[in-house]
Every structure is written in structure tokens, then in C-alpha cells.
Amino acid sequence: MWKKAIEDAVQKTRANIERYGDLFPHVSDKGKYQLNPNTDWTDGFWSGMLWLCYEYTGDDAFRQAARRTVESFRQRLDNNVSLDHHDIGFLYSLSSKAQWIVEKDESARKLTLEAADALMKRWRPKSQLIQAWGPEGDPNNGGRIIIDCMMNLPLLYWAYEQTGNEKYRDVAVIHAEKSRRFLVRGDDSSYHTFYFDQETGDSLRGGTHQGYRDGSTWTRGQAWGIYGFALSYRYTGDKAYMETSKRLARYFLKRLPEDHVVYWDFDVPVNADTYRDSSASAITSAGLLELLSLLPADDGDRAYLEEGLNRSMKGLVEKYATTGEPNAEGLLNHGSYHIRGGLAPDDHVIWGDYYYLEALVRMDKGITGYWYERK
């Protein structure tokens, strides 16, 4: 089942190289991906898919296409195009850092370190956090963190390992600890966002941007936390991050619906018209693979997490993948972007495609993503 799914994903990605040219897919509208000239926060996922396909197949067409995206990311950084946010980790871990990991290209390493420096500009010393969105001092977003940033921190951890400069690690650890304390609730659910006073750093309140309501649990946010805290454990060895990832994972898996692919929020009323978010299940599946790779063999949660991983991936492959739809551009149906904002509530989303492919190739060939150096 996994092999067939991978071969279909590779075939679709190969067809999309010509279809997209020098542009980058974001979310789709009625099955057709909306493209941009490397100006969105999601553009690294396309680059990452190309590198995964190259590693899986050895086909140089994927390598050449991936290298072209890295050159585009070089120009984006040089010209400071749409980088006023924390998702620089998503952009450069899956493009230039991927190239460094795969090819040991020194120019790609240098570009990735420059991207880490760009992310460090989001650090706010007074409030001791990495600001998610907007310019410094922004009245709405100046003191806001969001759980998605847990997947951006690996860029800083990696930069510390490459340079020995402790500023990268220190900022990542402070932000991860703040996220653990304030974004993760006592019942193992999570806030999407949390607000702090910009001058004092005092905690203010939790909230949401894309979830059902401020106190609900947005499923994609929970997924970011599962994977992100596992990665913070890998880099730091702090067992609190391992336990946090496990807590978030147990909460997620206990609430899988009958077909094992989650709705867009765990607290939204469910009826026949309630949207799913296949991307949340794909991120969680990839995150569970990472978490399981770090757990001791005798860990008491291992069997439960393995069973949950298999249920999630089987649900995606059997009911949500576009296998058997040869003209489909995306790999997964029924992803959601921003339902409350009316943006792509039920379509392909490129990050869902990426994490689905990452999980598949890791299960089949042990190929990890590009969040850390391989040993």
C-alpha cells in the first residue's frame, strides 16, 4: 500500500515540475494549485518535495528542479522578499538546508546560515520571544507567538550546531520553553497563539487565528506541536519536550474520527458538512515517525503511538490520497487552510502534500526530512 502511494506521489510531482515552471504552489482552488513567484510562507514545501523525490528515485530531473528552487530562495533572501514573519524556518530548512544535507553544497550551507540570521531578527529581547507576524511593535502581533513556530526552531538549532554560536540555541530554547509553558494546556490540548506584553513579557492570554474559537484546539496547531516538540527534544535532549510531544500526540490520537483523519478543529460541531484537515493528519503522521525514532524500545507509549500512526496513514492513503486520479495536482484531498477566513477550506494544500510524502518515504526507505543533520 505504501509503495503504490509513493509511486503515485512521485509521478504527480514529476508532472508538476513542468506545470509549475519557476513558480511555487500554495493552496488549490477547485483542484488547481494557485502559484506564486516565491512570495508565500509555504514555498519551501515544494522544494522539499523535490528533494525527497530525488532521494527516493535518484532521478536527476528532481535534483535539477530542486536546485532551481534553491536559487530562487537565494534571490528571495538577497532581496528581502516577504520575510517579515517567523516561517523562514519552513522556507529554508526544506530548500537550501535540504540541499546541504543531500549534496553537502557549501553555498547552500552559507545561504541557510544567512536565513537563520534573518529569523533571529524576529527575536524580541524585552518579551523574550520570536515574534510570529508583522513588524516589531505591531499593536496586534508584536507580542504574539504561535505554535507553528516549533517547526521553525530547527533552523536555529542547526545554525548553532554548524557555528558553535550559542545565540541561536539560546533563542530557540527560550522560545520553545515559553511555547511549552503557555501554548500547551493542562489537559494536553493546545492554544494556537498566545499574547505577551511587549514591554514586560508578562503573559496576557491564549487565543486563536485559524481555530474554531480562542479556547478550542485547532488540529493543525496540535500537529505542529507534536512534531515540533519532538524535534526540540532531538536537538536539546530535554525530556520535557519529549513528554510534551507525547502528551499532544495522545490527545490527537484519542480523538481520531471513524476514518482516522481529523476535522479542522477538535471542538468544532461535527455534521455532514464539517470540513476535515488532511494536512493535520499528515503532519502528525510525520511527527509520530520522528517521535517513535526517539523513544526507548521499552517506552510504555510506543505501541499506542505506532498503532495511531498506522491508523492515520492508512486513513490518508485509502480515503484521502489522490491515487487513481491521474490528473490531480495535489497528493491529498480535503486539506484546509483558513476556514474562518474563507481561504481554501477543502482542497489541496502544499504542506499537506509535503508531510504526507515525507511520512511515506520515511516508512518505506527510512529517508527523513530536512529538519536536522543525518548521522
Rank of each mutant, 00 (worst) to 15 (best):
A116I: 10
E136H: 15
A159K: 07
S179T: 13
T112Y: 13
F182E: 09
L83F: 05
G164N: 07
R144S: 04
R76H: 07
L94R: 07
A132T: 06
V171H: 01
Q128Y: 12
L83Y: 11
I101N: 02
W158Y: 13
I101Q: 01
D170N: 14
G164R: 01
K178Q: 12
G137F: 04
G134E: 10
G89E: 05
S95H: 00
R122G: 15
E166W: 01
Q75P: 01
T163P: 08
E166K: 14
P125L: 08
A118D: 10
E161K: 08
A159F: 10
D105Y: 03
D188M: 08
A108Q: 15
N152K: 03
Y92F: 14
L91T: 01
P139C: 03
T112M: 14
W133L: 08
Y92I: 14
V171N: 02
R180M: 10
D138R: 08
R122A: 05
P135A: 11
S107A: 12
Q131S: 09
V173M: 11
V102W: 05
E136A: 15
D105W: 03
I101P: 00
I88V: 06
S189K: 05
K110R: 10
Q162I: 12
V81I: 06
L113D: 09
Q162A: 15
R185H: 13
